[in-house]
Design a protein around this nucleic acid. Structure first.
Lengths: 121, 121
DNA sequence: AGTCATGCTTACTTTTAAGTAAGTGCCCTA
DNA sequence: TAGGGCACTTACTTAAAAGTAAGCATGACT
C-alpha cells in the first residue's frame, strides 16, 4: 500500500490517525459502551443488537491490537471475557467526549438530510 | 438500509455521526487544508498529490452536501472555484483540533507498530 | 446421551468505497 | 486553428469492508 519513499508519519494528518483508529462500522459504538464500564462479549452483543459476532470479534481484536482496549479472560466455565478501555484508551476519552458533544448537537439539529444548521443558506 | 422501526436518532451514537461526516479517505485531509484558508480545486490537488480528481470532487461534494464546506464559483475564465469551511463547518474546528492533538501525540509515540504508550504492558 | 451457554472462527458472498483513464466545455492566447 | 488551463464527469475496474451461516471447544446440568 505504501510504495513510495515518504513515511507514514511524515505525511499523515493526525485527524486521519484518529479516524483510522475509530473507523470501522462498530468501533465508535463499542468504545462508547466501554466508556462507563468493562463489558463482556455477550453484553456487547446485547447492547449492539445489529452487530454480528464476526464483526464484533474482529473490531474488538483490532481495538486490542491498537492498544485502546484490553481483553481479560477469566478461566471460568462457561468462559468469561471482559473488554475494557486500556489506560492508553482512556487518554482518548476527551477526544471521544468532544466528538460526542458535537455529534449530539448535530443530531439534534439534523436527523437525516444533514444540517441546515447555522448558515441561512 | 434502515428497515426496522427505530429511527436513526434514537440509536445513533454521536461519535458515529462525526465519523460519518469525516469518514472518507480524503476528507480529514481536505478539512485540514481548509482550516487556515479557503482553497481552490487545483490547490487542493497540489496539496494532496495522491488524490484523484474524481475522489477530490466527490468528497468535496459530500462535504458541501453536509454543509461543512462552501463552494464559491467566480465567473472568471478560466473558471475559479473556491472551497472554504462554512460557519457550520467552523463549529467543528474544536473537534478537529482535539483529534489533531491526540493524533499527533499518538503518531509521535508510535510510528508503525501502534502504541506501547502508557501502560507497561 | 443430549442440551445449553459462552466466545469465538471459518469459508463464502455481497456491498461499498476507491481508483483508472478518458472525455467535456469554456474562452484565451499564439 | 491549435493548444492550454481549469474544474470537473462518466464509465468501468479493483479492492476493501461488512454480512451470512455454519461450526467448534469446554464443561456443567438433566
Amino acid at each position: 500500500m505504501e510504495t513510495n519513499a515518504e513515511t507514514a508519519a511524515e505525511r499523515k494528518c493526525p485527524i486521519e490517525t484518529v479516524i483510522q483508529l475509530l473507523g470501522g462500522k462498530w468501533k465508535p459504538l463499542i468504545l462508547w459502551h466501554l466508556l462507563d464500564a468493562a463489558k463482556r462479549f455477550s453484553e456487547l452483543e446485547k447492547l449492539i443488537p445489529e452487530v454480528t459476532q464476526k464483526m464484533l470479534a474482529q473490531h474488538l481484536r483490532e481495538l486490542e491490537a491498537d492498544k485502546l482496549v484490553t481483553r481479560t479472560i477469566y478461566p471460568s466455565v462457561p468462559p468469561k471475557v471482559e473488554y475494557a478501555l486500556s489506560d492508553y484508551g482512556k487518554t482518548m476519552v476527551p477526544v471521544l467526549e468532544t466528538m460526542c458533544a458535537w455529534g449530539e448537537n448535530h443530531n439534534r439539529l439534523s436527523s437525516r438530510p444533514i444540517a441546515q444548521a447555522i448558515a441561512p443558506v
